[in-house]
Design a protein around this nucleic acid. Structure first.
Length: 366
RNA sequence: GGGUAGGUGGCAGAGUGGUCAAUUGCACCAGGCUGUAAACCUGGCCUCUUCGGAGUUCGGGGGUUCGAAUCCCUCCCUACCCA
């Protein structure tokens, strides 16, 4: 079945919508927990659904290395393999073009990696990225793109835009899957002219969804927040818009204000594993000694398991003695926090008060 | 009573005449993390500081030396062995 997307409410540029893919319907704006290697680190599917997760990410590069996309296909696809029955979006490996740049060589043909595990050569072409994601059987696949760093020169950004457009076309031409939808990725850094060029080209190819890539790659939050509204406005109004890899809670609200529908970020899980909790009062570092004898919960109104059953003192203790339950509980809490932030944003948009809601949140986090 | 090996920063443990305010690990304190090579990485951790430095440290005391955690004397303490 083809992807369905409809916008039901608007509040300035912010919007509430509904996205339906093969494995379910997702209210938007929505945050997607990152499950790179067929697991959202530390959390079972049940722990994810308990806090309202309805769509998660997987990764082309990491899953083709281990356990191999053909093996996953043999075992019934990524959904069955990891026992996640909801929608899955897979990233194309384009981000590894950025994050593993030191062991990667890029040409018009594709990206040649040396495996970060054993050094074995691995070539990721647009066609290969499509095939891997088709083997994984995700609901939404991303085209392979070139993601340059935030400090890249205009020349480098320009070349990445040209290449990303060409690769998107090749991905589209190679795509054939009964239910999987393919999203295009707009590059261009914080250079608006390049973003315009890239978005225009990709929009003409009529993808079912569009993403903004190349943000949160070192350009800094000020530059990103400044560029977001203009960049989001370049994406087709009737299609879902996905801001890749972003970000902190305030970045998510900036994205929503700009008209973004989907987000993903490793931050809630990675920072959770590292004892940083996101709360309405800002970041709480559970490793800090001031929590040692605090009997209060992390957040009294949070419905997550950790907040309902344990004190800050206990969470501090878990991290202090390096017990695995600490990272698990905080990962779940942070996912819960992000998803509640999305839910509260949707309500605020429906009421026409998103701007006020955003301002209140940002003021509290400071 | 005799012998042997030792006593170094919160702990363990290097160093054995100058490059030592003293390697390293742990503990402790703080910071960072944005399409996950991250349950990880940084930094701090005697006192004071105008961050350039300054002042007191290596069981106690005394001595040798231009200079001692390092050599000598002495006392105290610990472990093991012999009586």
């Amino acid at each position: 079945m083809p992807l369905k997307f409809s916008v039901t409410h608007r509040d300035d540029c912010a919007r509430v919508g509904s996205l339906t893919v093969q494995h379910g319907t997702v209210p938007t704006p929505m945050f997607m927990p990152v499950g790179t290697r067929a697991t959202v680190k530390g959390l079972t599917p049940l722990m994810l659904t308990d806090v309202g997760a309805c769509i998660i990410l997987g990764n082309t590069y990491h899953l083709t290395l281990r356990p191999g996309d053909e093996l996953i296909a043999e075992l019934g696809g990524l959904h069955q393999f990891m026992n996640w029955s909801g929608p899955i979006l897979t990233d194309s490996g384009g981000f590894q073009v950025f994050s593993l740049a030191s062991q990667m060589k890029i040409t018009d043909r594709g990206a040649s990696f040396r495996s970060h595990i054993d050094g074995a050569p691995l070539e990721l072409t647009p066609e290969k990225a499509v095939e891997i994601q088709q083997n994984l059987g995700s609901d939404i696949a991303m085209v392979l793109d070139e993601c340059p760093p935030g400090n890249a020169s205009v020349d480098v950004l320009q070349k990445a835009v040209v290449r990303s457009i060409a690769w998107a076309a090749r991905c589209q031409a190679h795509h054939r899957h009964p239910y999987q939808s393919q999203f295009a990725i707009v590059q261009g850094g914080t250079d608006i002219a390049l973003r315009v060029e890239c978005a225009r080209e990709l929009a003409s190819m009529n993808f079912p969804g569009y993403a903004l890539g190349g943000f949160s790659v070192g350009e800094g939050p000020v530059a990103m927040h400044a560029a977001l509204p203009e960049c989001a406005a370049l994406l087709p109004e009737s299609k879902p818009r996905y801001l890749m890899g972003v970000g902190r809670p305030e970045d998510l609200l900036a994205g929503i204000a700009a008209g973004i529908d989907l987000f993903d970020c490793v931050m809630p899980t990675r920072n959770g594993r590292n004892a940083h909790a996101f709360t309405d009062a800002g970041v709480v570092k559970l490793r800090n000694a001031k929590h040692k004898r605090d009997p209060a919960p992390l957040e009294s109104d949070c419905p997550c398991y950790g907040c309902r059953h344990f004190s800050r003192a206990y969470l501090h203790h878990l991290f202090s003695v390096d017990e695995m339950l600490g990272p698990i509980l905080l990962s779940q809490h942070n996912i819960a926090y992000y998803l509640r932030l999305m839910a509260r944003s949707r309500v605020a948009i429906q009421r026409g008060g998103f701007g006020e809601f955003r301002a209140e949140c940002v003021a509290r986090w400071r």
